[in-house]
Design a protein around this nucleic acid. Structure first.
Lengths: 193, 193
DNA sequence: TAGATTGTTAATCGATTAACAATC
DNA sequence: TAGATTGTTAATCGATTAACAATC
């Protein structure tokens, strides 16, 4: 999608696996292989029609539908998530924010009222939330996860620096900047400053 | 490291590949293989001494040294990063924050003064910063990356939702919550609500 | 027709897992 | 000695890449 936007911005109608790969740091073969898994979207000798491929990808990614997301934790990270402008147009909408600090409950972030975690279950059900982003302190994370799973949440993006234990039908992914940094500095440590 | 902390909290002196794997969702064979790449840290029939393995891992990961990190962008994400408590003790320290908004320059976040991006090069050199976290709007990202590379930064953790082009000796990793969410909702879309 | 680029097959590469001798 | 667990080899699995016929 990014490669397509970029090519469209350049005024193009059509792009190639080579061009997309170059922009994304992926081999052209990889691009073609991945796309072909879902269908035949290109024309030999010509490449891919940007608008057509874009539509197809949106359909495949399920971006046409909008997912309601709950944010748990209204601290610095939670606030940044709620204010983040990058969700709209990419398939997600923050539909609720929770915290258990009475000083935060009732306040608004981006015109969204911070709710008590006591209302988590009912709100998740009412607003048909299937996805949550977890931005609470490490100690609280596992407890909150259990509440989320009980409320029917099926996918959790975890910002807390702990491993979570969940029943297997629930998807969990972890965003940990420290681990991402370590991936890079591990190699830097091998070479001189 | 997480598995070790957890086992230590449970009052244990020794743990096994099986136990660590269970906690992290990784196979015991994987754990042993990865560790054995760096040396022999365990005892047959017994397992791994937690304190000893912990020390070895810290040495291998280069966590004993502390990396000075620059944060570029003092918006919601940049602020959350600077305030994030999870860096200390894990090998990283935010050593500088930059923004180009005159309304933000000179203010403090966590007792750290926001500096003008004009001072980026000189500050990076003075404070021996080799790692940067990029939290600027998408449009500004590529331009800032070029400044960072020119200043000698060798690793960049990118929070902006765009692909960056860098000369190959510079490491780049990307944190994009939308992509992480899509990884999960792609599967959710296949099954009924 | 000549050039370009797809979709796909086959080859390569790397990562994961199973299995087990070694040994605490 | 019996049971447990390591480190490592070999087998398996999956992902990536190279190459090319098909064709626009």
């Amino acid at each position: 999608m990014r490669a397509l936007s970029r090519a469209a911005d350049g005024g193009k109608q059509v792009t190639s696996s080579h061009e997309m790969g170059e922009h994304l740091g992926i081999s052209p073969a990889q691009i073609r292989k991945d796309l072909s898994h879902f269908g035949e979207f290109g024309k030999q000798g010509t490449g891919y029609n940007i608008e057509h491929l874009s539509e197809q990808l949106r359909r495949i990614l399920g971006v046409e539908q909008e997912w309601a997301v709950a944010v748990i934790g209204a601290g610095a990270i939670g606030k940044a998530i709620v204010r983040y402008g990058g969700f709209s147009g990419r398939g997600f909408r923050v539909a609720a924010v929770f915290d258990n600090d009475p000083g935060k409950i009732g306040r608004s972030i981006n015109q969204l009222e911070v709710l008590s975690t006591e209302r988590l279950g009912s709100t998740v059900r009412q607003r048909e939330i299937r996805v949550a982003m977890l931005a609470v302190p490490a100690e609280a994370a596992q407890r909150v996860v259990e509440k989320l799973v009980e409320a029917g949440v099926e996918a959790i993006l975890n910002y807390a620096p702990v491993s979570l234990i969940v029943p297997s039908p629930v998807y969990v992914r972890h965003i940990d900047p420290v681990i991402a940094l370590q991936h890079m500095t591990y190699y830097l440590a091998q070479k001189p400053a």
